[in-house]
Nucleic acid binder design. Structure first.
Lengths: 201, 201
DNA sequence: GTCTATAAAAGGATAGAC
DNA sequence: GTCTATCCTTTTATAGAC
């Protein structure tokens, strides 16, 4: 990806996306965004009324990028729908390991950092979670016949999100990948336990 | 509890505890703490070198209060050890409902808000999670004979934490208690599924 | 231990030329 | 669309009397 000649707005959003992930929203200053994106104050305020509008753009970028930036890379080479769920979780594991258990899910961090988000911000965070759960539920739905009829696939997908977010939270706090791995193992055991028969090899 | 004549340090810590819960650490200013605790700047800096030291005191208070302030109220009138786990989760549900799904676990929020906490802060957040998981693991251990020998009770207790924290995160974001309830229901189903026989009525 | 006043810095946002 | 300079507010922290 060529990074030098992107348009200014894109550079701002990408810089903010990374900084919010690294430091959080409140701890990222406009000056941080300006210096990382190599943009001047006037240009930022030409495109965005204020800092919160940059956040909105970042959350829109995450929402729009969930397929191409998150799911497709995680699922490349993985065909089995249930394995795709665990491949997705493995991509969060990678992020944790690569950052020495410092950074996990950017949406989750923002969701707990911002205590009284304005409606557009909250709605976009919800849209991100919804899209994630939709995708995971879709995986389980493709394997519908492996689960008992009464299994609530939506609730199962939400459990996967909880396991991921909770695992990230604990691993970050303990600076240890162990809690994340045990969380995923618990989900695996649960999915196996409710599966009707073994998957085709 | 008499609140007027508590000593100054205690008033500061209690005010900060509430404010960090309501607004987060970064969004709570020293001025906020001073006005809520009715203390003057000079007094706060007499007791604490800076804002982060107030946070340390708050986290110590949570850690020391987990028994008397969290577990004992949640467990009053509940004798069955496994039901105590769900009674604890119900106390988080209460916090969510009473605040219109705005506030959940203060430790979880701090854990995701603070991206690069200084060692004493991170260690205290870890100590809080550890104490929570210890308590829940203790409940499961009291019902050891209800679970297969190979069941990892520690991992099960960690799952309970993940379910709580994930459920809080989603319910807060969607401003809807549904995700939290479904998360707890999934844990209940999992615990029931691995239980060897029905509990005594 | 507590009070008031204030220093010192950071941060969000704006103005106006180009 | 971009640039520099700067205003204004908030915030952390300190000084020094009492």
């Amino acid at each position: 990806m060529v990074c030098v000649n992107k348009d200014t707005r894109t550079r701002i959003v990408e810089a903010a996306m990374e900084l919010f992930w690294l430091k959080g929203y409140g701890s990222t200053s406009i000056a941080d965004i300006l210096s990382r994106s190599q943009v001047n104050s006037g240009s930022l305020y030409y495109f965005f009324p204020g800092k919160q509008d940059v956040l909105v753009a970042v959350l829109e970028a995450y929402r729009d990028g969930i397929g191409p930036m998150l799911l497709e890379p995680a699922w490349s080479g993985v065909d089995d729908p249930v394995e795709r769920v665990f491949a997705l979780l493995a991509s969060y594991r990678r992020a944790l390991v690569e950052t020495d258990c410092t950074y996990g899910c950017p949406i989750g961090s923002l969701a707990l950092e911002l205590h009284e988000p304005d409606p557009p911000v909250r709605e976009l965070m919800a849209a991100n979670f919804r899209a994630w759960v939709d995708a995971v539920e879709g995986c389980f739905a493709q394997a519908r016949d492996r689960f008992p009829e009464e299994t609530d696939l939506r609730a199962l997908a939400e459990l996967a999100l909880n396991v991921m977010e909770g695992g990230v939270m604990q691993s970050r706090t303990f600076r240890d990948i162990g809690p994340f791995d045990r969380a995923v193992a618990q989900l695996r055991a649960h999915v196996d336990a409710i599966s009707l028969r073994e998957r085709a090899a």
